[in-house]
């Protein structure tokens, strides 16, 4: 369980990192927190020719909130999200999700960008990004492009990123007024990758009916998916036990998980019903 050989370099600017990535070719990889890449190296499931260490790139570790929304730099550590007291109301799911990633030492090192780029189908942050309609900003020597979170994930451990593209930040658009969010997941032990998870954001009107609902599910497909039918069941309706149950039921019925030795497809679907119901019930109670 020793990493295979590779070349290593530690650029000090984003521009330099991009140039190096362009030069080093297809098999080069960035390393951020290393909390996903290092285990893959130890198992020799990844064999990069070059590792470009982005930990010292300036400016990528900022978390900025403004009227336009929230910007999360690629190097923002999970623990930073977990501890940021500003992440309440519409942003709370982000904080709740970050707090559920692995364990404390993992969260101190692991980064938002790494989690997104690693694209584990069970990872928390991608689910939140999809629920919150985030956009990923990526850069290469060829320039910058913006990719909606819903288009970013291409499959298990796959994204639409080119090898030489660096994810620099995620932009979360400002939500409608009276938006709240919640995150729920279930894994067999504390800190385990979740069998299933959900991020929910809800905006309500003055009369208490739901104006906009976004429900994203994790662990039930190759990438995070939206539960559109569940969202529709809520929009225009008040939050009641009945609408909550209806939405949870539709979320479960509408997803098509595949099973494995650790959690069957049926079980994952049952979990979705439970988790969506729990997230919505929480939002209902807190109103």
């Amino acid at each position: 369980m020793k990493p295979p050989p590779f070349a290593y370099r530690r650029p000090s600017s984003v521009q330099e990192a991009l140039t190096l990535a362009a030069q080093a070719g297809e098999d080069a990889k960035f390393i951020a927190g290393g909390q996903s890449l290092m285990p893959l190296l130890a198992l020799r499931m990844s064999r990069p020719s070059h590792l470009i260490d982005i930990n010292r790139l300036p400016g990528l570790d900022e978390l900025r909130q403004s009227g336009a929304g929230l910007r999360v730099g690629a190097l923002v550590r999970h623990a930073t999200l977990e501890r940021d007291a500003r992440l309440t109301g519409p942003w709370r799911a982000l904080r709740e999700a970050a707090a559920l990633i692995g364990h404390h030492p993992i969260r101190l090192r692991g980064t938002f960008g790494g989690s997104a780029a690693h694209a584990d189908p069970s990872a928390e942050l991608p689910v939140v990004a999809v629920a919150m309609d985030a956009t990923f900003v990526v850069r290469s020597t060829a320039g910058e492009r913006e990719i909606p979170a819903s288009d970013f994930f291409a499959g298990p451990l796959m994204t639409v990123l080119d090898p030489a593209e660096l994810l620099v930040e995620a932009r979360f658009p400002a939500p409608p007024p009276r938006t709240r969010s919640a995150f729920e997941e279930f894994g067999p032990r504390a800190g385990d990758f979740a069998f299933a998870s959900t991020a929910v954001t809800l905006s309500t009107r003055d009369d208490g009916t739901v104006q906009q609902a976004r429900i994203a599910l994790g662990g039930v497909d190759a990438v995070p998916v939206r539960a559109y039918e569940a969202e529709q069941a809520l929009e225009g309706e008040p939050l009641t036990d009945a609408t909550v149950r209806e939405a949870a039921g539709r979320a479960a019925a509408g997803c098509a998980p595949s099973g494995d030795a650790h959690a069957s497809a049926t079980y994952r679907r049952q979990l979705i019903a439970t988790l969506v119901e729990r997230a919505l019930s929480r939002l209902k109670e807190e109103r």
Partner: peptide, 9 residues
């Protein structure tokens, strides 16, 4: 801060 030294180069 606590880190896993097997996951750091």
């Amino acid at each position: 801060l606590p880190v896993r030294s097997c996951l750091t180069l």
